[in-house]
């Protein structure tokens, strides 16, 4: 059982939790994730480790209420317990030896973009962040990102906050102006695909973080697999980071939507139960 020490609402659909998880907090590194099962009926689903404190033995997770499991998680409050959390899973991001980077984040992808940017800055890498959201109400982690990059560019699809632009438009402006040796992208797969298509033209190495459908998170089920450079890879053990220029994104998009109907039915059922 894992105790929730703190819960903070970031926007209408996204919240952060600080959880007591001694083993995980001691080993966690930026880019890694945990798998959570909320109660005995729960599914196992992955969430990125946003932050950790080795002394206080805590990890921070950020989640968006999109399905039954995240809605169930959101029902829990400070002092409540989560039944199972296992980790840290996946390989830590390899961010060493770069000079100048751009981190391109979309929506709740900021939960991964933040720790990766922080790590890059710690390593002495010049780090710029572009963070895109659909609309103003969905903006999260602005303060955290600005602490890392004072010139943080926030953009929204509808122009309600920051610049009215897609992240790729801002990325292109930057790539036209300066030389970078790494782009990191985290967010919706469609966005990451667009980012990678753009950076390929500029021939800049690009890392994409591919946290997908998983059960065990240890390489057992194979549900999370994707094609990278024509090879079968497991996001849980070989990733979650992959060379963005080698990922078959169209396949990844289809795979990620595999259970969309089932998830919709489950979510509707859960919401109806709540109304009773």
């Amino acid at each position: 059982m894992f105790k929730i020490l703190k819960k903070e609402i970031l926007n209408n659909t996204v919240s952060m939790m600080k959880i007591h998880a001694p083993y995980i907090s001691k080993k966690a590194l930026p880019g890694q994730f945990v798998i959570i099962r909320i109660d005995e009926f729960g599914e196992r689903f992955p969430l990125t480790i946003f932050d950790y404190d080795r002394n206080l033995e805590t990890i921070d997770i950020i989640y968006q209420k999109v399905g039954t499991s995240t809605m169930k998680l959101d029902k829990l409050n400070e002092q409540d317990y989560i039944l199972d959390i296992v980790g840290p899973l996946g390989k830590a991001s390899e961010l060493e030896n770069y000079n100048k980077t751009i981190v391109v984040s979309g929506g709740v992808g900021g939960a991964i973009a933040c720790p990766l940017s922080r790590r890059l800055k710690e390593l002495g890498t010049h780090t710029e962040i572009i963070s895109g959201f659909r609309t103003k109400d969905l903006v999260i982690l602005e303060k955290n990102m600005r602490e890392i990059d004072n010139n943080l560019v926030i953009c929204t699809d509808d122009g309600s906050y920051g610049r009215k632009a897609l992240v790729t438009e801002i990325l292109q402006e930057k790539l036209n102006k300066n030389k970078y040796d790494l782009v990191v992208t985290v967010g919706p797969i469609v966005m990451m695909k667009a980012v990678c298509e753009l950076t390929k033209k500029y021939n800049i190495k690009t890392i994409a973080s591919m946290i997908s459908i998983m059960i065990d998170g240890t390489g057992m089920c194979g549900g999370c697999r994707l094609t990278v450079d024509g090879q079968v890879k497991f996001a849980c053990v070989d990733g979650p980071d992959f060379d963005g220029h080698l990922i078959d994104f169209d396949e990844a998009i289809t795979r990620n939507n595999m259970y969309r109907n089932e998830e919709k039915i489950s979510r509707e059922k859960y919401c109806n139960l709540k109304l009773l």
Binding site: F41, G42, E43, S69, K72, I215, S266
Partner: peptide, 12 residues
């Protein structure tokens, strides 16, 4: 492990 075939469980 997850009883996914049983609709009382959340795993699809």
């Amino acid at each position: 492990l997850m009883n996914a075939h049983d609709t009382n469980y959340d795993t699809p």
